[in-house]
């Protein structure tokens, strides 16, 4: 009935003493040792039943054939299966009216967010704010159009992509081979003028004619650009490579050739549509 310490006789101590406090050397309960032995037996059984021992390549598979990879694959397949109807619907959906179907639209936005994170964020940024040379997708300026169908086309076929004959294509000449450095200096000052920045009036006056002769064909007489050829608007506050004099001089002299992959070659039609829907609702969609 009584534990040894309660017996009148002295209980052995461990012999340790801290500040006069001694430690009893009471025995552990017996079930304690049984639990220890049980865990050892369990461990042996576990290492036989489940993958356990590391080998050169992989590990022992275990008798139950359990695999986390297979489990993840099965989970993904189950999710795909559950979403199959919506995915099929999305692949053939008319994007201009997709907002009328809130379920499909919500599905597309969420799927598009995942597609964007995995495929687009490397260049356009996780927040879609872009980077130098990679357009910001949150603003209201679009090189090739900001309607949902325009965006879907760009995602599908890419920009200046040789693998896809339908890719958005245009090329700005390297004006350094055509114009004199002084002429470039003048036209750059004209662009500074029409974009509302500080400029040299004399240079800009001379540059106006150079612009009309060489640049207006694509960028328009007023410099507001042309989406048919992906020519950027030069009068606004948004610059893909930078709007300062040095960067503009470099752009005019050597030209730029930004490339975007044709995602239709890698993603499913549903994923392309989803990405377009997602990008369209980030704030800049037209």
């Amino acid at each position: 009935m009584r534990s040894p310490r309660n017996d009148k006789q002295e209980v052995e101590t461990t012999g340790h003493s801290w500040d006069g406090i001694q430690e009893y050397n009471n025995p552990l309960p017996r079930w304690w040792v049984w639990i220890l032995l049980a865990t050892i037996v369990w461990g042996i059984g576990y290492s036989i039943a489940y993958p356990a021992w590391p080998l050169i390549k992989g590990a022992t598979p275990g008798l139950l054939g359990f695999s986390t990879r297979a489990q993840v694959a099965a989970d993904i397949a189950a999710v795909d299966q559950a979403n199959a109807a919506l995915t099929t619907k999305l692949a053939s959906a008319d994007l201009t009216t997709i907002k009328d179907d809130p379920t499909l639209y919500g599905y597309a936005v969420n799927m598009g967010a995942a597609v964007f994170r995995a495929n687009c964020s490397q260049c356009h940024g996780a927040g879609a704010a872009g980077n130098v040379g990679f357009p910001n997708l949150l603003d209201n300026d679009w090189l090739w159009g900001g309607k949902i169908t325009d965006i879907a086309y760009t995602v599908q076929h890419g920009v200046r992509n040789e693998q896809d004959p339908d890719a958005r294509y245009s090329q700005m000449p390297a004006w350094g081979e055509i114009l004199q450095p002084e002429e470039i200096h003048q036209v750059v000052n004209y662009v500074l003028q029409i974009s509302g920045q500080q400029f040299d009036a004399t240079l800009a006056d001379a540059g106006k004619q150079i612009f009309a002769d060489n640049c207006a064909a694509c960028h328009g007489d007023d410099g507001k650009g042309n989406r048919d050829v992906g020519a950027p608007n030069l009068t606004d506050k948004i610059w893909l490579y930078g709007g300062d004099e040095a960067t503009l001089t470099k752009t005019v002299t050597y030209s730029r050739f930004g490339v975007m992959p044709a995602w239709g070659l890698r993603l499913s039609q549903a994923q392309v549509n989803a990405a377009a829907v997602y990008v369209h609702q980030l704030g800049g969609g037209e």
Partner: peptide
């Protein structure tokens, strides 16, 4: 507040936060 990016410049110079 969306912190990536902290602000967006629109064509006309309007600053927009999300």
């Amino acid at each position: 507040p969306v912190r990536n990016p902290t602000y967006i410049v629109q064509s006309d110079g309007t600053i927009r936060d999300i």
